[in-house]
Computed example of a mutant assay.
Amino acid sequence: MSDWTWEYISHDLGESLAPPVRAEVERIAAELAVVNSMVYLEGASCQGLSPGLRVEYGSAADGTHIMLSYLTNVRGERIVIVSVTSV
């Protein structure tokens, strides 16, 4: 089990999403936390640079296409969801 977590950059971001979109974003974020815990094994003691802003795509149960932007805070061992665009 990963010690990594994820969070929205602000509580308003998660609350503003439709329930199917929010569920998909949270599923993607949880997967990103696990994947990054395996990529950055040193976590909090990492001395290198964080990878910067990245983008992930998904589809909600209602067919909505999702693009989420996120930061990997390696030393904080967390994924920060910065923005979510859905169409």
Rank of each mutant, 00 (worst) to 15 (best):
P20W: 04
G76E: 15
V39M: 04
W4I: 07
V35K: 08
S83I: 03
V55A: 14
P19G: 06
S2F: 10
L32Y: 01
S16M: 04
I66R: 06
L49Q: 07
V25M: 03
D62P: 14
V74W: 03
G63L: 12
E24P: 09
V34H: 03
D3L: 13
G58E: 10
I79T: 06
G63S: 14
L68D: 00
I9K: 11
R78W: 05
P20S: 04
Y57P: 02
G43Q: 00
W6Y: 15
L49P: 03
H11S: 12
S69V: 02
M67C: 08
A30G: 06
G43W: 04
G48H: 05
V21Q: 06
A18S: 13
G58Y: 14
V82K: 03
S83T: 13
R22T: 04
Q47C: 08
I79F: 02
L13Y: 04
S86T: 11
E26V: 00
M67D: 01
L13I: 05
D12E: 12
L53G: 03
N36S: 12
V21C: 04
L41N: 09
S2N: 14
V82W: 01
I9E: 07
P19Q: 08
V34W: 02
R78A: 00
C46K: 12
V87M: 12
V80H: 00
S83D: 09
P20V: 12
A30Y: 01
V74C: 00
C46D: 14
A18I: 09
Y70N: 05
P19I: 07
V87Y: 11
S10M: 05
S37E: 10
I9F: 01
P19V: 05
R22G: 00
W6H: 06
